[in-house]
Design a protein around this nucleic acid. Sequence first.
DNA 1: GTCTATATATTCTATCAAGACGAACAAATC
DNA 2: GATTTGTTCGTCTTGATAGAATATATAGAC
Lengths: 108, 108
Amino acid sequence: MSIRLGEFEQLVLLALIHLADDAYGVTVRREIARRTGRTTSFGTVYATLARLEEKGLITSRLGDATPQRGGRRKKFFRILPAGRLAVSASLKVLRTMTRGLAPSWESP
Amino acid sequence: MSIRLGEFEQLVLLALIHLADDAYGVTVRREIARRTGRTTSFGTVYATLARLEEKGLITSRLGDATPQRGGRRKKFFRILPAGRLAVSASLKVLRTMTRGLAPSWESP
DNA sequence: GTCTATATATTCTATCAAGACGAACAAATC
DNA sequence: GATTTGTTCGTCTTGATAGAATATATAGAC
């Protein structure tokens, strides 16, 4: 059996894919909000990121200080192959469950 | 915000749609296993069904005894409009999160 | 007919994993 | 040291999970 992903974990992984090199707590939260209208607290986002890293689905590196305007250094996240596999599998599960239904239902 | 669905709750609701009039604990579990290859315990299935009913997304009625081959009476479940709405919304969220990615990713 | 074996299905109990939030903390620049 | 930006902590609620226990129907023995 492949790795089990929670509902929000899926969203975070997909956000990481979209954000590519610019994925850190703040942008992840923003990307999800922008696309889905769903706003969550930072606590939720970071907890999920930590859990995903724990599971070996993503990695993190600490970014350099930007000479812009104050603030703590960013912790950038990147999705790993195992992470892509996990999302892919969990989307596939949904696809097989929606197969045969009316078009508006199929393929989330 | 629309009702929040857990990952397995989605699968159960979709199974109910497929099974239509023949949805009860055993068939729900079987349908999910058949389609996704994922087998869960009955405890999990019934707990989820109970939770979904609690939330007002599905209803249940007790079936008649079948003159077949022993066994307890079945408890049939049916998805309610609110349930359809909830799955629909949660699938939509995934669609918006996969939009723009390679075809193999899009639309779970 | 009643009794017990068997098949079928659901509920209970306990525990761990995920999701959620707000406050606290940390570290950069000005 | 004040401000800005970003992350971590503590705590609680909800969702997922398995396995044992329980319930209830029929079949067949007698």
